[in-house]
């Protein structure tokens, strides 16, 4: 297993946010996490990325990557907002993680630049984030997340703020690049169709304190295209997810 989480519990004082959370993610797999609002999905990502403790949370349990304790920083977090900074060009926004890690600006730019074409951002390197469309901003934020070469991507509702049409286009695009680069990905979403379309497996969380209530496998061939959207098997997964969430 690429990622193995056992009995993860996070609490803020008396407030238990996660309790006894266990999950596995295989290399190259995309696992979605759905659950009621405020159940602690983002807290799970914070705990995995190692930043929950600094917020005053108590974190217990084990997280293993490649069968051993977490070494270095294997998780790349893409937060809900794109958080592109207006004082940096699009290119320099995408290199932020590399710069923080001590990579020279020149090398960081070269590495990020190579991804602008597949991410549909070619020609916008020197633009300011404000000049980008919503979909482009999300692609730039994802580029910033993946360019550091982190082994596991944590995508927190990456398309939540987009309009329906752009969101569908972005889901198809993510499926195509994911297939090309083979990222190991955990994805938080509110959208059961998005979860069914993109995932190998979907984990449904319980209300707070959250734990994995149900795991649903999505047995559809990859790479998935728009045609999958009308596949009855996809509709069946969606229905099952909705039933579980409402139960």
């Amino acid at each position: 297993m690429k990622v193995r989480v056992r009995d993860l519990a996070v609490s803020y004082g008396d407030l238990d946010v996660l309790s006894g959370m266990s999950l596995d993610v295989a290399a190259g797999e995309l696992v979605s996490i759905v659950g009621p609002s405020g159940c602690g999905k983002s807290t799970l990502f914070g705990a995995l990325a190692g930043i929950a403790g600094e917020d005053g949370a108590t974190v217990t349990g084990t997280v293993e990557v490649d069968g051993g304790p977490v070494r270095g920083a294997p998780f790349g977090l893409m937060p809900q907002q794109d958080l592109l900074f207006p004082w940096r060009t699009v290119l320099d926004n995408t290199t932020l993680g590399l710069e923080v890690a001590g990579t020279s600006r020149r090398e960081a730019r070269a590495r990020a630049q190579a991804l602008f074409e597949p991410f549909g951002l070619a020609g916008f390197e020197q633009a300011r984030p404000g000049e980008l469309s919503g979909g482009m901003r999300q692609r730039a934020a994802l580029l910033r997340t993946v360019v550091g070469g982190r082994e596991v991507l944590l995508l927190d509702e990456p398309f939540g703020a987009l309009d329906a049409l752009t969101r569908t286009a972005m889901q198809e695009w993510l499926e195509s690049v994911r297939d090309r680069y083979g990222w190991t990905t955990l994805l938080i979403t509110h959208d059961v169709r998005e979860a069914a379309f993109l995932s190998d497996r979907v984990l449904v969380l319980s209300p707070r304190p959250a734990t994995v209530r149900r795991e649903i496998a999505v047995d559809l061939p990859r790479p998935r295209t728009r045609a999958v959207l009308t596949d009855p098997r996809l509709a069946a997964v969606e229905a099952e997810l909705l039933d579980t969430l409402r139960a």
Binding site: G46, A49, G50, I51, E54, D55, A73, F75, G76, L77, P79, Q80, Q81, L83, F85, L96, G97, E99, V100, A101, G148
Partner: peptide
């Protein structure tokens, strides 16, 4: 400074000084 911006920087492993400088 946006709390989530700070969280992003911390997830990148940024020190307090780097958070100050970059954000």
């Amino acid at each position: 400074t946006d709390r989530s911006a700070t969280a992003l920087l911390r997830s990148m492993g940024a020190s307090r000084l780097q958070q100050f400088r970059y954000v």
